[in-house]
C-alpha cells in the first residue's frame, strides 16, 4: 500500500458521509426548488418576486444582517485587540466571556433577551423609571430587539476571527510605528487595522451569513409580524408545508450567500498567494 492510498483511506469515510449527508441534501433542495406538478418550473421564484411581500422580507433580512455585521465589527475589533494584547490571565477571562455564550444554546440565550426586553423587563422599566420613554414603550417584537439579540449571539464569531489574526501580529510592528511618529490611534488605523483586514473580512462574512440564515432569535424576539427570510422558510416547511416554495426561498438565500462568498474566496486567495 502506498502512502497516497493510506491517506485516502483516512479521508474516505468522512468524505462519504459528507457526500451522502451534506451534498445530496443540498442537491435535493436545488432540484425541489424548480419542480412543479408538471415537471420543471420557475413558478416558485416568480411567486417570490410577484408582489412586494416576499421582496420586503428579503430586504429586511439583508439590511438587518448588514447592520448586525457592522455593529459586531465595531465592537469586535477593539475587543479582539484588547484580548490579543493583554496578559494570559486576563485573556483567559476574556476568552471565557466570549466562548461561554457561544457554547450556550442559541435558544437559551434568546430566552435571556426575551426576559430582558419584555415590557416589564429590566431595560424597559429602567428607561421608564428615568422618564426617558413613555408608558407604552415596547422593545420586544421590534427590529431593535432582533439586532440586540443577534449581535450578542454572533459577536463571538467576529471576535474569534479577529483574535486569530491579531494575536499573530508582531507587537514590534506597532512599537516601530510609534517610534516613527504615529500616535496610538494612528497606529491602530495605519498598522493594525490593515493587517487585521483578513480577520475582519472573514468575521464579517461569517456574521453576515449566520445572521441572514438564522430564524430562532428573529422569530422569538421579532415576533410573528417582523418576518425574515429564514423564518419564512421555516414556516413554509413546518406550517404551510409548501416545500417547493421553501426550497425556492432557500435557493435565493443560498445564491445570495454564494454571491457574497465567491469574491471573498478570491480575496483570500490573493492574500495567500
Amino acid at each position: 500500500m502506498t502512502d497516497r492510498r493510506e491517506t485516502w483511506l483516512f479521508l474516505l469515510p468522512g468524505l462519504a458521509l459528507l457526500v451522502v449527508g451534506f451534498i445530496f441534501p443540498i442537491a435535493r433542495m436545488l432540484v425541489l426548488s424548480v419542480q412543479g406538478p408538471d415537471g420543471h418550473t420557475v413558478d416558485q421564484f416568480a411567486r417570490f418576486f410577484q408582489d412586494t411581500f416576499y421582496p420586503s422580507i428579503l430586504w429586511r433580512t439583508v439590511y438587518l444582517s448588514a447592520l448586525i455585521t457592522a455593529i459586531c465589527a465595531a465592537i469586535g475589533f477593539p475587543l479582539a485587540y484588547i484580548m490579543a494584547r493583554s496578559g494570559p490571565r486576563v485573556r483567559l477571562w476574556l476568552v471565557i466571556m466570549v466562548i461561554l455564550p457561544l457554547m450556550t444554546s442559541v435558544v437559551v440565550r434568546t430566552f435571556g433577551w426575551m426576559v430582558l426586553l419584555s415590557r416589564s423587563g429590566l431595560i424597559a422599566s429602567t428607561l421608564r423609571d428615568f422618564g426617558l420613554v413613555g408608558r407604552s414603550f415596547q422593545l420586544m417584537h421590534t427590529e431593535t430587539a432582533i439586532v440586540l439579540g443577534m449581535v450578542q449571539v454572533l459577536l463571538p464569531f467576529m471576535v474569534l476571527s479577529l483574535l486569530g489574526v491579531i494575536i499573530r501580529l508582531d507587537p514590534r510592528l506597532e512599537e516601530a510605528a510609534r517610534t516613527m511618529g504615529c500616535s496610538f490611534l494612528q497606529t491602530m488605523r495605519r498598522v493594525v487595522l490593515p493587517l487585521a483586514a483578513p480577520g475582519l473580512l472573514a468575521g464579517s462574512i461569517l456574521v453576515f451569513t449566520l445572521s441572514a440564515s438564522s430564524f430562532v432569535t428573529p422569530a422569538l424576539l421579532g415576533g410573528p409580524r417582523i418576518e425574515v427570510l429564514a423564518g419564512s422558510i421555516y414556516k413554509n416547511v413546518t406550517q404551510t408545508l409548501d416545500w417547493n416554495f421553501a426550497a425556492a426561498q432557500a435557493v435565493i438565500l443560498f445564491a445570495g450567500i454564494a454571491l457574497l462568498l465567491i469574491p471573498y474566496l478570491r480575496l483570500g486567495r490573493r492574500a495567500h498567494g
Partner: peptide, 17 residues
C-alpha cells in the same frame, strides 16, 4: 464547508431527502 454554509439550507435539504 458545513461551517460556512448555513445549516438551515442543509437542514431543509436533508428533511426533503
Amino acid at each position: 464547508s458545513p461551517l460556512v454554509l448555513p445549516s438551515i439550507i442543509f437542514a431543509i435539504g436533508l428533511l426533503m431527502l
